[in-house]
Design a protein around this nucleic acid. Structure first.
Length: 272
DNA sequence: AGTGCGACCCGAACGC
DNA sequence: TGCGTTCGGGTCGCAC
């Protein structure tokens, strides 16, 4: 599941491979994943080139100078570079061919990913981008900010950490890890968090995401980022996917529960 | 407004 | 070549 660290890894990997190459053909195999007009998608991309790749939260921002291609990988979206003469593989939904005979291919077994091609001058106003909260590595993410966002919130803190309009970029894996590092019970209501606990969330989300990016993200279950890059953060996971295993801190058994429909792992002793 | 939940997908895991 | 069912997960949109 690509979260912010995985998306950052994809961004860095792709930047080295596809910038400034002329796009000569676009093949849309599964049109439903394109949110903008399909005909425009093809005609605008063809003839242009990507001059940079940015990222906001879990959104990749492919910069075409006057347009940007917004791409969200959701759970299993991946990008691959292949020779244009290679046969189309199963689950490849969008193929962007370059003049040098290579393709950028978007692969997504669940078909949950989305792309949206918009004018560059407008993209910060696109709702999905505009509503993103502060990222873990932003200096604007402070305990004061979180305290205000959690005010009057009855929802469990685990659910609030997954709300991209509050903190942008955390997914199910890192939300569990942040709560463990902050020693917070996942079902604790947002409004009951102290400023000190908010500061713990700020500090641990920064350090966990920084470490995860450094490790190239987390490879868990089926998720390997583009071009076969394998993340190495999974060896640092403290609670996620560790049901019935011993807590590294106190040896209690890690418990798995559902929080608003999401699998949640925590240590019953460390996270009261 | 805030909250809850089904829909979108399909491979893997599971039950029999 | 076993087949049918359930589960999961990020986000959206709709219901309450």
């Amino acid at each position: 599941m690509p979260e912010i660290a995985e998306v950052e890894t994809v961004r860095n990997t792709l930047k080295r491979r596809i910038l400034n190459k002329k796009i000569v053909n676009v093949n849309i195999i599964y049109p439903k994943m394109i949110e903008s007009d399909i005909k425009d998608f093809k005609s605008i991309l063809e003839g242009r080139k990507f001059i940079d790749i940015g990222r906001i939260g879990k959104w990749l921002i492919f910069d075409l100078d006057d347009y940007v291609l917004l791409s969200h990988l959701r759970m299993e979206g991946k990008y691959f570079i292949k020779d244009s003469n290679e046969a189309l593989a199963k689950h490849e939904h969008v193929v962007i061919s370059f003049a040098d005979g290579t393709d950028l291919r978007y692969h997504d077994t669940r078909k949950f990913g989305r792309m949206n091609l918009v004018k560059k001058s407008d993209y910060l106003e696109v709702e999905s981008i505009k509503k993103q909260g502060y990222e873990p590595m932003s200096k604007d993410l402070t305990s004061t900010y979180l305290l205000d966002k959690f005010k009057n919130k009855k929802l469990p803190i685990k659910t609030l950490l997954l709300d991209q309009t509050i903190i942008s970029g955390l997914g199910n894996i890192y939300a569990d890890e942040v709560l463990f590092a902050s020693k917070i019970y996942p079902l604790k209501k947002g409004e009951d968090l102290t400023k000190k606990k908010c500061q713990n969330i700020v500090d641990s989300s920064k350090s966990i995401i920084e470490k995860a990016i450094e490790m190239g993200g987390t490879t868990i279950k089926s998720y390997t980022s583009s071009l076969g890059v394998t993340g190495r953060f999974q060896q640092f996971l403290q609670v996620h996917k560790r049901e019935n295993e011993e807590c590294f801190n106190c040896q209690s058994k890690i418990i798995k529960i559902k929080v608003n429909g999401r699998s949640t792992y925590y240590c019953p002793k460390c996270q009261k």
